[in-house]
Simulated assay, not measured.
Amino acid sequence: MKIAFSPCPNDTFVFHAWAHGLIPGAPKLDITYADIDITNGLAVSGEGPDVLKISYAALPWALSDYALLPCGGALGRGCGPLVLTKTKSNDPTGLTGKRVAVPSERSTAYLLFRLWASQQVPGGVGEIVVMPFHEIMPAVRDGKIDAGLVIHEARFTYPDFGLHLLADLGSWWEADTNLLIPLGAIIAKRSLDLEEITGWIRQSVQYAWDHPKVSEEYILHHAQEMSLEVAQAHINLYVNDFTLNLGDEGYEAVFALLNRAAEEGLVPKVDYEKLKARASN
């Protein structure tokens, strides 16, 4: 079975057991490790693999071919993207007309940023520059861009680059809506046995929780020189009960984000029933 997900610790933690043949009855995985901007593109190309980790922001474009699975993704509280600058400021109006780097134009981080900026940045920001997320902080530090939208372990490492927090978009979203923050989704082709795939992923998640040390070597191998402490903090932040089961609270948060974005013309409108439907028809 072909699958694509990022080399980030939360994804390698979730899929370690399945990737290493530790889930009884699960097929062997043919894995592509790719940045979220690449997997988002694969999801909407019509030529993507069987299973994908994508941004929730890209989901509206993928739902014709793929179904959202109720497990394996990243959704929670206190885990949102950050807006960072080189100079210390808590005034978002300073971003008016500025150059901002983002990890993907169809990332949830960028979607949250656009919703936030429509409220907080009069006149809007200037140029948006898409770059791999690990290049964003050095670019802000070196003055190549004015601000950076960062995700993942950057929450823990941005002070090492001499950067400052302008806004925590997760905190803004939670205060504005009192809902969870939907970040990354697992999707599978509607033509497949979605119940089976859901079961294999849940077993893989549970195995990771039951045997946390077994996956360390695999996680660190793909973690781009990240320390074990940062990798573990990353996992603790993004792998939670909603990774095992989205539940009604998770689906409500996802639909609220996409519906609000659709109302502002940022994504196609999504039908709630189609969002939850996991059958091939």
Rank of each mutant, 00 (worst) to 15 (best):
G143C: 03
D146R: 01
D146M: 04
G148K: 10
V150N: 09
I151S: 13
I151G: 02
H152C: 13
R155F: 01
F156R: 01
F156D: 08
P159C: 10
P159Y: 04
D160S: 14
D160R: 13
D160K: 14
D160A: 13
L163A: 09
H164S: 08
L165G: 02
L165N: 09
L166R: 03
L166F: 04
L166H: 03
A167R: 04
A167P: 06
A167F: 03
D168S: 07
D168Q: 07
D168E: 05
L169H: 07
S171W: 02
S171E: 15
W172F: 01
W173Y: 14
A175I: 00
D176K: 15
T177M: 10
T177Y: 08
T177A: 12
N178C: 11
N178G: 12
L180K: 03
I181Y: 09
I181E: 13
P182K: 07
L183N: 04
G184N: 14
G184Y: 09
A185T: 09
I186K: 01
A188G: 14
A188P: 05
R190Y: 07
R190F: 08
L192S: 05
L192D: 02
D193Y: 01
E196D: 14
E196R: 15
I197F: 04
T198G: 06
T198M: 07
I201Y: 07
I201F: 07
I201Q: 10
R202I: 04
R202G: 12
